[in-house]
Amino acid sequence: MSRRPVAQIDLLALQQNLQRVKQLAPDSQVLAVLKANAYGHGLVKVAQKLTAADAFAVARIDEALALRTAGIVKPIVLLEGFYEAAELPLLLANNLQTIVHNELQLQALEQTPLEGQLKVWLKIDTGMHRLGIDPAEVDNVYRRLWQCSNVLPGIRLMSHFSCADELDSATTSKQLALFQQLCADKAEQHSLANSAAILAWPATHGQWVRPGLMLHGISPFVGKQGADHQLQPVMRLSSRLIAIRKVKAGDTVGYAGLWRAKTDTFIGVIAVGYGDGYPRHAANGTPVWLNGREVPLAGRVSMDMITVDLGHFCKDKIGDEAVLWGPELAIERVAAQAETIAYELLCNITPRVQYQYLGDNG
C-alpha cells in the first residue's frame, strides 16, 4: 500500500470545461492560461489535451520553452512579457508572442536588431495598477509599436480586471469603459475577460477570452462552486488512512493540543500534510471525504499527516482512501476553511504527490 498522496487529473473534465468556456463566449477565441504548472495540474499534459484552445498563455519564458520542447506548436503568449533585450532572439526563435507593458520593453523592441518580427500584445492599465501602460501614454506607445520594424502588424490590446469576481462592484464596468475609450480609434483585437469575467461580465468578452481557474472546474466567486457554473472538477487529491486510535473525552490531539475530544471517539491519521501541499492553516472541522461521508479535521495539520474525527461508531479500516478535494468534496470549501483561495491550494502541491492522468491517450 502506497502512503503517497495521489492527484488524479481528469483530462476529459478539462476538455468539457473548455467547451463550457466556448458556450459562454461563442464569438471569442480562447487563450488558455497555463501558468504555475497549469494551476498545479501539469503544464504539458494539460496543454496536450486542450487541443480546442486557440492559444496558450504562460507567465514566464521557461514555461513557454517547456511547452515547445514537448512539441506544442500552438501560439504561446508571455503574460509578463520579456525581461531584457537579450531574450528577444529566443522569443523569435521559438515563435513566442509577448506582452508589452512598460517603456523599457518598448525601447528594447525598438533598438534590438532582429531577423524577424514578433507578435505583440499591448497591455493597458485600466485600474489594476500592477502591469500595464498608463492611459495617458497609450496612444504614444501604440504608435511606436506600429512604427517598430520588429513588431508584426496587428497589435492586440488587453487589460486585466481587479474586481471581476465581485459582482456588486462598479470597478469592472469602469475599467471596461476606460478600455473602450482608449481603444475606440484602434482597429485591433481585444482581450479583457478572465474566468470571472467570462462567467459574469459578457460585455467584456471581446475577440479573446483568457480562462484559467475555470478550466479546472473551480469557481472564482466566494461562496460558489464549480458545479454552480456547470463546470467539472479536474483534480481529485486523495491519500490513505494509516492509523486509527481511540481517544477518551478530554484528550487532545496534535501539536499544541488545539483539538480536544468532547466524547470518546476514534481518531484517524491520514498520510498527507503541508509537506504535500495540504494547507497548514486548515481549521478544525475542515471536511475530508472518507467512506461515503465527511469527517472533520481534528487538530493541527502536520508536515506529513492530518488527523480526523472518525466518530464513536467508527467502521473505517487502515488503508481506506480519504479524499482531500475532488468531485466528492469541493476544493472551494477546503480553501474557505483554510482562509485562502483555491488557486493557492492548487499551486502549493509539492513533488511528493503522485500524479495520475485519466483520459490520457498517450
Rank of each mutant, 00 (worst) to 15 (best):
Y142I: 04
G71H: 07
Y355N: 14
L241M: 10
D228Q: 10
R352V: 04
G362P: 00
R130D: 14
N37V: 01
S28E: 04
L297H: 03
I124A: 07
P75A: 04
S191I: 04
L106T: 09
S149Q: 01
A13C: 12
E332R: 04
G277K: 02
L358I: 03
A55R: 05
L67S: 01
A243P: 10
D139K: 11
T112Q: 13
Q354D: 12
Y142G: 02
G275E: 08
D125L: 15
A47Y: 00
T263S: 14
L358A: 03
A38I: 04
S195D: 07
R333L: 11
G268W: 00
L122S: 13
N140G: 06
G40N: 10
M214F: 07
I198C: 09
P220T: 06
D54V: 12
P5F: 06
A170F: 12
Y357K: 00
I218G: 03
I198T: 09
A249F: 11
V77Q: 02
S195P: 09
I318K: 10
R245Y: 14
D27K: 08
R333Q: 12
V288C: 08
A164M: 13
I244T: 05
L258F: 05
K74E: 02
G223T: 06
I341S: 06
A193K: 00
Q356M: 02
V120F: 14
M1Y: 15
L215H: 12
A187W: 00
D276Y: 06
R143G: 08
Y142H: 14
L182G: 11
W201K: 10
L114S: 11
L131C: 05
P279E: 03
A70W: 07
A66N: 08
C163L: 06
V253T: 07
E332S: 09
L78K: 09
Q117P: 09
I244S: 14
V44Y: 09
T350H: 00
S195A: 06
S191M: 13
V44E: 01
R280L: 02
Q16S: 05
R4M: 14
F161Q: 10
V301I: 13
R68S: 12
E87D: 10
A322T: 03
A342I: 04
D10S: 09
